[in-house]
Amino acid sequence: MSKNASIEPTPQDLGFFSRIAHPGYFLQWSKYWLTPLTIITVVLLAFGTYLAFFNSPADYQQGDTVRIMYVHVPNAWLSQFCYAVMVVASVGSLVWRHPLADVSAKAAAPLGATFTAVALATGALWGAPTWGTFWEWDGRMTSTLVMLFIYLGIIALWRTFEDQARAGRIIAVITLVGAINIPIIKFSVEWWNTLHQPASVFRPDGPTMPMSILLPLFVMFFGFSFLFLLLHFISMRAEILRRRVRALERRNAQRLREQQS
């Protein structure tokens, strides 16, 4: 099985999509994206931070704590988006057995876990002045915590497998099972929450947000999204290289054995 996996068709024989998703070709074209993406990310995040601190008003209800929203909301969005990326990649590795899909799913998991952790931490720091407590067993925070557990479980699972190609397909199954369950978990947690405490907690999504607050939010939102894209590319490249290193190490060991005998 491992022999067949290493025989790759040359990029020229394939269609457009297969060509950009060919691991070797991916290494080539993604290289030219790294610098522009870095520049875009740094500019957006710097500009967003400037807007957040120096060029946006305090909210009339929550005062200055609204500034936490500019880091909290993009990370909360990415915590879900990363899982969506993993789900798409899992379908890719189960249906098409595509090696790059495994790589993409594996690279997204630590990113998702970090963004989820940031969302939780900033949520707690936002909660302290507005709710008066760091942790509230509120529907959103609780389901974000469960999300973090799921990410960490998947990362732990990646680390226990020796054979990464097999790991990719097995983890794809559990990722899809998780995808079916996450909405149910969210629903059950929200239901449980309303059962135990009447909805008194403050909800950050007010219907009207003035443009002066929306603008920094948008800038930060795109800044963090580009950061995800950039880091995802770098992790995927690292993962492809890691697999090549493994293959070469195996060949090296094989060669040494042949020389001895």
């Binding site: 799921i150 960490l152 226990t160 097995i170 369950n181």
Partner: peptide, 26 residues
């Protein structure tokens, strides 16, 4: 998922516990 892992004693519970939350709640 974990049957092929030789030393995966704790990994299965870690994966399953978050999925068990709805059952426990209801």
């Amino acid at each position: 998922v974990t049957v092929t892992i030789k030393r995966g004693g704790l990994i299965a519970p870690i994966l399953i516990l978050p999925l068990s939350i709805p059952t426990l709640i209801f």
